[in-house]
Simulated assay, not measured.
Amino acid sequence: MELTLNRIVKDKAYTLGKLLVDGEEFCHTLEPRWRSPEARKVPGRTAIPAGRYPVVITLSPKFKQWLPLLLHVPNFEGIRIHAGNTVKDTKGCILVGENTEKGVLSDSRLWVDRLKQRIVDAKERGEGVWITVDN
């Protein structure tokens, strides 16, 4: 299964994107501020770099639930896809939901559950799961 995160708004406070699953629009995403690859990473306030990363589902000690985890993200550890409504709800992870107003997601838990189910289904079919994050 191929996930694609297309970043569509790079505001000074947040990054808004669209998540596609196998080429079809799935939901919106929200991340911390995007910084160019040459810029200094600010811990907890920087979106992850563009790239293609394997995705697994593991038990998150912080959230105490099973959540998607991106592997091998340069200069970052523990990048998850999880629920949240504003950029204050993430320290670098990708939030999913519906973009209802500027810089805000709604129905985030619902979209996390839907995404987790799609990932589990793909893994049960023996498929790898990857996410490509654009600049």
Rank of each mutant, 00 (worst) to 15 (best):
R33K: 14
T58H: 05
G17Y: 02
N99V: 03
Y53T: 10
G126L: 05
R109C: 08
M1Q: 04
L95N: 03
V120W: 14
R45W: 09
D11R: 06
T58C: 11
G97W: 03
T15W: 00
R35H: 12
C93R: 04
G92A: 08
L115Q: 05
N85S: 12
N85F: 08
A13I: 01
G128R: 15
T4H: 11
L20F: 15
T86F: 05
D113N: 13
W111N: 06
C27M: 00
R80S: 13
G103W: 02
F63A: 14
Y14Q: 07
V55M: 13
R33V: 10
I48H: 02
L3G: 00
I131C: 01
L105A: 08
H28L: 03
F63N: 10
E127L: 13
L70N: 11
L19I: 09
L95Y: 08
K102R: 11
G126T: 12
L69E: 04
L19A: 06
K18W: 05
T90R: 14
V73W: 09
E101A: 13
L115R: 07
Q117D: 06
E127G: 04
N75W: 08
G44H: 07
T86P: 06
D11N: 12
R33S: 01
A122L: 10
G103H: 00
R52H: 03
R45C: 02
V112S: 08
A122D: 06
V42R: 14
I131V: 12
P61Q: 13
R40C: 03
P54M: 07
S60T: 11
V104Q: 02
E101F: 05
E38R: 14
D134E: 07
A47V: 02
N135C: 01
G78A: 11
N85E: 12
G84L: 11
I119Q: 05
V96H: 09
L67F: 04
E101N: 10
I48R: 03
T46L: 03
K116F: 07
T100M: 09
W130T: 05
G92T: 08
A50I: 00
E38C: 01
F63G: 00
A47D: 08
E77W: 10
R80C: 11
A83R: 09
G92I: 05
L110M: 14
V87T: 09
P32L: 09
I81Q: 02
G44E: 08
P68A: 11
K116Q: 07
R80L: 15
K12N: 13
